[in-house]
Design a binder for these strands. Structure first.
Lengths: 162, 162
DNA sequence: GGGAATTGCGCAATGA
DNA sequence: ATCATTGCGCAATTCC
């Protein structure tokens, strides 16, 4: 898929002290280059409390050393960063899709309601017609069925879609 | 304009383990919360050269002041962190609302379609009745009017449901 | 100019 | 062990 070889310039590889990793990732997706010098602060890791003398704490010792300089560490970070980016992209897209879905549903809703209105009207007309006819029948026998029946376009099923 | 009640300012330190702060300056009274998590960064103090006068050159030199130790800096950061949190919260909530809206709309959609179905059926029944009656009339009384009324399926409500 | 809001990103913890 | 998800802080940018 979208996987570009990202350069990794870990400057100050073995500089004496602090790590200013001004990693200019230069992601491909980054357009509008305004030369963004990003800079994440280095975090000093507390290797061990200086004065303390805990020799062997409980046997649960996992987070002993996170070699920031380790190659593997950087590798893992990079992978995670990629994963994070991907995940966020997907999340964003999903939200967008949802929003679009809302719009579509709203549209369809309107359509359906319009149709309901139409059908209701038709129904009402037909019912009136029946009533009228029934009255006519009750009054006498048959006055004029045709006239009663077709006043205009009662039965028009103008079903215009959309 | 802040319209939202400030949440508890205590930084709720629950995991901040790996970062310790090597704060050079002991700030004054840290009101409300003593937020931890500071890092030391090599700060290149690049004050405006020349000494004395301000005379800021019209160039693009704006990174003149970034004192990480500054009280104002920390203050700004904290405010921004709060703002970020708020913004993200809102964003999340909005997404959630949108999702819920989708559900509601879907539900209503179903309801509407059901109603359409019902109305269509009613209409169809009524029309059939109508036709039948017309036939009766045609049989018994005048063929002329009956013929005018019912050629075949005059009132075909071709209700296509999506 | 200035503060809040938004956005992109990296880090670390955690879930699956 | 690898990837995905998530909370959080930083910094740049944008919006009042």
């Amino acid at each position: 898929m979208s996987k570009q070889p990202q350069q990794k310039l870990t400057s100050t590889d073995q500089n004496g002290v602090s790590v200013i990793q001004s990693q200019a990732h230069s992601s491909a997706a980054n357009s509008a280059g305004a030369t963004a010098g990003l800079q994440q602060v280095p975090q000093l890791v507390a290797v061990s409390p200086g004065g303390g003398g805990k020799a062997t704490p409980p046997s649960k010792m996992k987070k002993t050393l996170l070699d920031k300089d380790s190659e593997e560490y950087r590798q893992r970070r990079e992978r995670n960063n990629l994963a994070v980016k991907k995940s966020r992209m997907r999340s964003k897209q999903k939200a967008q899709d949802t929003q679009q879905r809302v719009n579509e549903l709203k549209e369809e809703n309107e359509r359906l309601e319009a149709k309901i209105k139409l059908l209701s009207k038709e129904l009402s007309v037909l019912k009136d017609l029946f009533l009228e006819h029934a009255h006519n029948l009750a009054d006498n026998v048959q006055p004029a069925s045709a006239a009663t029946v077709a006043p205009g376009d009662l039965c028009n099923t103008n079903n215009n879609s959309q």
